[in-house]
Simulated assay, not measured.
Amino acid sequence: MKLTITALAALFMLQVWCLPTPEPRPELETRQSCDNLNLVPLLRAYSSKQTDHFYTTDVQEMQHAIAKDSYRSEGNEALVLFDPVPGSVALYRLWSKTFTDHFYTTSESERDAAIATGKYDFEGITAWVFPTQVCGSVPLYRLVNAPIEDHFYTTNDAERKNVIANNGYVDEGVAGYVYLTP
Rank of each mutant, 00 (worst) to 15 (best):
L39K: 10
L39W: 03
L39S: 02
V40S: 04
P41F: 04
P41L: 11
P41A: 07
L42W: 03
L42D: 06
L43T: 06
L43K: 04
L43M: 11
A45D: 01
Y46S: 10
Y46T: 14
Y46H: 13
Y46N: 11
S47F: 00
S47G: 10
S48P: 10
K49C: 13
K49G: 07
K49N: 11
Q50E: 14
Q50N: 15
T51A: 08
T51D: 12
T51Y: 12
T51S: 14
T51I: 12
D52Y: 01
D52M: 11
D52C: 08
H53M: 06
H53L: 10
F54H: 06
F54T: 04
Y55C: 02
T56N: 05
T56W: 03
T57W: 07
T57L: 08
D58Y: 05
D58C: 10
D58K: 12
D58I: 06
D58G: 07
V59L: 15
Q60C: 07
Q60D: 15
M62V: 04
M62W: 08
M62P: 07
M62R: 04
Q63Y: 04
H64D: 14
H64F: 13
A65S: 05
A65G: 06
A65Q: 13
I66R: 05
I66S: 09
A67L: 12
A67N: 15
A67V: 09
A67H: 03
K68Q: 11
K68H: 14
K68L: 13
K68T: 13
D69V: 11
S70E: 13
S70F: 08
S70M: 13
Y71W: 05
Y71F: 14
Y71C: 00
Y71H: 10
Y71I: 05
R72A: 14
R72W: 09
S73D: 13
S73L: 15
S73T: 13
S73V: 02
S73F: 12
S73A: 12
S73C: 08
E74K: 04
E74G: 03
E74W: 02
E74V: 07
E74S: 04
E74H: 09
E74Y: 04
G75K: 08
G75F: 10
G75S: 07
G75W: 12
N76F: 13
N76A: 14
N76L: 11
E77V: 08
E77F: 03
E77K: 03
E77D: 14
E77L: 08
L79D: 02
L79C: 06
V80C: 05
L81N: 02
F82Y: 14
F82N: 15
D83P: 09
D83N: 13
D83V: 09
D83W: 03
D83C: 01
D83S: 10
P84A: 01
P84Y: 05
V85P: 01
V85Q: 07
V85F: 03
G87W: 03
S88V: 02
S88M: 00
S88C: 00
S88L: 01
V89T: 10
V89S: 02
A90E: 01
A90D: 00
A90F: 03
A90Y: 01
Y92I: 01
Y92F: 14
Y92L: 00
R93P: 09
R93K: 14
L94I: 04
L94C: 11
